[in-house]
Design a protein around this nucleic acid. Sequence first.
DNA 1: ATTTATGATACTTTCGAAAGTTTGGCAATC
DNA 2: GATTGCCAAACTTTCGAAAGTATCATAAAT
Lengths: 181, 181
Amino acid sequence: MSVSPVREALARLVATGLATAEHNLGYRVAPLSAPDLEDLVGTRIREESWALQRSIENGDEIWEGQILSSLHVLERLPRENPQEPTLYNEQWESRHCDFHNALICECGSKLTLGYCETLRDQNDRYRRLALVLEIGKRNAANEHREIAEAAIQRDAPRAIEALASHYAMTAQFLLETYADD
Amino acid sequence: MSVSPVREALARLVATGLATAEHNLGYRVAPLSAPDLEDLVGTRIREESWALQRSIENGDEIWEGQILSSLHVLERLPRENPQEPTLYNEQWESRHCDFHNALICECGSKLTLGYCETLRDQNDRYRRLALVLEIGKRNAANEHREIAEAAIQRDAPRAIEALASHYAMTAQFLLETYADD
DNA sequence: ATTTATGATACTTTCGAAAGTTTGGCAATC
DNA sequence: GATTGCCAAACTTTCGAAAGTATCATAAAT
């Protein structure tokens, strides 16, 4: 494989904020930092809260069904990789993504959904780090059920609060652990 | 000049939403549409309103000074191109951009500032179309002064309202003119 | 007559090599 | 001894051509 396709791929990573590029200095993995994480989580909560609010206003029974079904599938899957608990269970990750998408997908703004997706991609690098720290300390399933329940009951403030603390918690774990970094 | 650098440039246009790419079908100018414009303007108002609010809370006297000075420069420049009134005055555009950046630059979120920039880039294609329609029908200077004044007086609701209607107006012109499109 | 294959053309993507940059070490100079 | 200039090695970017795909028109078959 030659440089051209690698370069194209790299350009896409830059576009989603996963890598950085500097002319004549090539590409680098985008650095991780506490301030960036805080910015990321704050922005993400803001964006998704709005999208969730709008979805709760707009969503129909098909939307509700999608949330329930993706939650159901998620709950039958172990979060940790059965082979190696410090690794991602890629299947769980994929379903997790589906669940969170189902919540906000009726917000009515393609732009916002796209932005939420890139924010999620950026966040995943931090989540990957947090996974090990959270083992046994957190019940993701409960958090998800709480969000889904509030959303379907059209209780927007409660749903948003649950979603926000769900996102904030991961950041909390990391920021406390790497406080000096 | 060969294909590689053109391709890299195209990839960046895709990243900012100005072009689209499909594998083996190359690149295209991203289509313009009424729904996209509505989404864009709504999102933009939401993002910049938040950023303006935060800047009003955080900004110091240097922030105020930057707003005043960029507004001042903007007001001495004609909006239309002196040679050809249906064309952009690139100098005015550049300063206009500076002014709007000055308003929100103290929001404290790099991510949001970056997003606002790409939203502005996308919006500019529509603004370019609207320019001709607005000649003589609009006093941009007044609108800018109103926003700046409210911001510096730390009157967030008034500033946000002024900014929102400033952005909404351009879309209004276009949507009314091309209602069938 | 309509549908399905075939092939030529134009276009997109990828390749391997050439050209251009940065970096770090070594020598010459102040 | 510290600073500056120069060279070589490694890397990034660009190039022109080759390989791979889509498209459209023409011909064959149902």
